[in-house]
Amino acid sequence: MPIRTNRGRTAVYRRLWGWPLRSPRHLIGTLVIVAVLFTALGILMPKVIGKPGDTMVSGPGSSATMTSRPGVAAPVTGTSTLPPRLSSPPPPSSVPPDQDGIRVAKEWVTAWANHPDGTTTEQWLKGLESRTDVEYMAELSSVDPANIAATKVVGEPRVVTSAQDSMTVDVQTDKPKVEVSVVKTNAGWRVTKFTQVD
C-alpha cells in the first residue's frame, strides 16, 4: 500500500537513515558498502567519461594522433613526433686524467711483467705491493708468475676512461696488452684490477 501522508514518509526515511546506527555491526557494514561504492566509482568513472581531449595512441619514435570525441570543443586532429627513448645511459662524465694514476699503472705493469726465471710468487708480489690495493693483493697471491707471457712494457700507457677518483689505462707489453683499473685511495693511486687484452 502506497505511503500517502508526510508523516508516513518521514517515518520511512527515519528508519532508513537510522538503520546504520542501530548496532556497531550495521555501522561497519554500511561503511564497507560505502567504501566499495566509492572505490568502484573511482575506477569506473575515468573509463566511462575519459579525459577531456580524447585518446592518444603512441609508441617510441612514432607519431601520436589525437582525436576528440563528438560534443567536445576544438575537434582538431594533430600529429606530433615524439622524441626517441634513450636506449642506453649516457656515458660517465670524463675528467682530465691524473698523471700520477697513469704513472702508477705503467709502473705496476712493469713490475707485473718483471719475473725472471726462478722468481717466486712472494718476490713477484713484493714488487707489486706498493702499487696494489690491499684487497686485490689477496687475489694476486694465487697467480704463478711463470705463467705470465709478458716480460717488459714496450709502449706508453693510454687512458681509456677517466673519472675523478678512478681510471682505466691500457699498457702495451711485448706480449698482450694489459688493461689496468686504478683508484685513488688515501695512500695514493692503487691498482684494483687488471685484464690481459689480446
Rank of each mutant, 00 (worst) to 15 (best):
A35H: 03
T5K: 07
V171L: 05
T195I: 10
S166Y: 06
R4K: 15
L16S: 09
M137V: 15
T173H: 06
S87H: 10
A149F: 04
S63M: 14
V153L: 01
R4N: 13
V109R: 02
V57A: 10
W124M: 02
S58L: 12
G61D: 02
A73W: 15
I33A: 09
K152I: 04
K47D: 08
R15C: 12
G29M: 06
G78E: 13
A150P: 00
P90R: 09
V159C: 06
T185F: 00
G118N: 05
R131G: 01
L82M: 03
K193R: 12
F194W: 12
V171I: 07
R190W: 00
I49F: 13
Q99S: 15
T185M: 03
L128I: 08
V48W: 11
N147E: 07
G18N: 14
L21I: 04
V154R: 00
G188L: 12
L44I: 09
R22A: 01
I43S: 14
D198G: 02
T173I: 10
P89D: 15
N6V: 12
R103I: 14
A64W: 12
T5H: 07
W19F: 15
Q172L: 08
P116D: 00
L128N: 00
P20Y: 00
P24G: 11
T120Y: 02
R69A: 13
P157K: 01
W189N: 00
P20L: 00
W108S: 00
E135A: 15
V143F: 06
D100P: 06
G188Y: 13
D198P: 05
N114E: 10
V160W: 12
G118H: 06
R131P: 04
R158L: 06
Q123K: 07
Y136L: 10
V36C: 10
Q172W: 06
L44E: 10
P46A: 03
R7Q: 11
T77A: 00
E122A: 14
S87V: 15
K47N: 11
A150W: 02
V182H: 01
F194C: 05
T119R: 01
